[in-house]
C-alpha cells in the first residue's frame, strides 16, 4: 500500500493534467452534442440530414480508406526491400524515411502545392513541353489530396512495417528454407502471415491520421474538398457554429475509437507471437 501510494504520487501531476485538460474537456465536447440541440440526438439528426455534411463525412472516409490502402501497398513492398537490404543500405534507407516524418505536415503538404499548383512545377513543365490545354487544375481535387496524404503517410507505414518484419526471427525464415520452401513460398506462407498484425497496426495509424487530418486537406483540398478536419475548423472558427463543431468532433472521436479498438482487437487475435 505504501508502495502504491508512492507510485500514485509520482504519477499524480501527469494524471491530473490528462484528466483535467483532456478527459474532461473532450467529454464536455461530446456531452454537449446530447444537450445542445432540442432532443439528445437532434444534432446528429441535423448533421446526417444535411446533404453537404453527409458528403464531407463520406468524402473523408473515402479519402482515408484510399490513402490507407495505397500507403499499405507502397509501404509494405518498400519495407520488405528495406528489411532485406544489406545493413549499411538499410540504415540509410531508414534515415531517409525518418527525415520526411520529422519534417512537419505543413512543409510536406506545401511541397505538393508547389508541384501541383496552377503556377506549380508540374504545370510549368507541361506548358514548357507544350501539352495541349496546360496549365491544368490539379490542386483542390480529390486526387491532389490523396497524393499528398499518401506522401504524408508512406514513411510512417515503411517504418512500422520494417519494425514488424525485423521482429520475425531469421531462424524461422531459415527453417522454412531448410524445409524446402522457395523464396515465394516462404514469403506467402511465413513472412506475410506473421506480418499481418503489424500491417493492421500501420493501417490503423494511417486511417485515423487521414481521417483527422487538417493541414493537407486545407492546403490541397480547400473548400471544394472539405474533410472532417477542415469542416470542424470552418464550423468553429469561421461560422462560429459550435453546435455543428461539437457534432463533428464527436463523430471524429467515435470513428477513431471504433477503428482503433476494433482493429487492435483483431490484430491481437491474429498475433501468434503474443499467445
Amino acid at each position: 500500500m505504501v508502495h502504491g501510494l508512492k507510485g500514485w504520487m509520482m504519477a499524480a501531476p501527469a494524471t491530473a493534467l490528462v484528466v483535467l485538460c483532456l478527459v474532461l474537456p473532450v467529454s464536455a465536447t461530446i456531452a454537449a452534442t446530447f444537450y445542445a440541440g432540442g432532443g439528445p440526438f437532434d444534432l446528429y439528426a441535423a448533421f446526417l440530414s444535411s446533404g453537404f455534411r453527409r458528403t464531407v463525412l463520406w468524402r473523408t472516409l473515402e479519402i482515408s480508406l484510399i490513402t490507407t490502402v495505397l500507403s499499405l501497398v507502397i509501404g509494405f513492398l518498400t519495407a520488405y526491400v528495406v528489411s532485406r537490404a544489406p545493413p549499411r543500405w538499410r540504415s540509410a534507407l531508414i534515415i531517409l524515411a525518418v527525415f520526411p516524418l520529422l519534417t512537419g505536415v505543413v512543409v510536406r503538404s506545401f511541397a505538393w502545392l508547389i508541384i501541383l499548383g496552377r503556377n506549380g512545377i508540374m504545370n510549368n513543365l507541361l506548358v514548357w513541353i507544350g501539352v495541349d490545354g496546360a496549365p491544368f487544375t490539379m490542386v483542390y481535387t480529390q486526387g491532389s489530396v490523396i497524393v499528398a496524404m499518401v506522401y504524408l503517410f508512406v514513411p510512417l507505414m515503411i517504418l512500422t512495417i520494417v519494425g514488424v518484419l525485423e521482429n520475425i526471427p531469421d531462424d524461422v525464415i531459415e527453417a522454412a528454407q531448410s524445409l524446402g520452401a522457395t523464396p515465394v513460398q516462404t514469403f506467402r506462407q511465413v513472412i506475410f502471415p506473421l506480418a499481418v498484425p503489424g500491417l493492421i497496426v500501420g493501417s490503423v495509424l494511417v486511417f485515423t491520421g487521414s481521417f483527422t487530418s487538417f493541414a493537407t486537406p486545407q492546403l490541397l483540398g480547400g473548400d471544394q474538398q472539405m474533410m472532417m478536419g477542415t469542416f470542424l475548423y470552418q464550423r468553429a472558427m469561421v461560422a462560429f457554429d459550435w453546435d455543428g463543431a461539437v457534432t463533428v468532433s464527436a463523430i471524429m472521436v467515435a470513428v477513431t475509437l471504433a477503428v482503433v479498438i476494433g482493429m487492435t482487437r483483431i490484430a491481437k487475435r491474429l498475433n501468434p507471437m503474443t499467445t
Partner: peptide, 18 residues
C-alpha cells in the same frame, strides 16, 4: 489517450472548455 483522441478535437475542446 492524447494519441488516441484526434488532435484537432483536443484543440477545439481546449478552446471551448479551458
Amino acid at each position: 489517450l492524447p494519441v488516441l483522441i484526434p488532435e484537432i478535437v483536443l484543440g477545439f475542446s481546449l478552446l471551448r472548455s479551458i
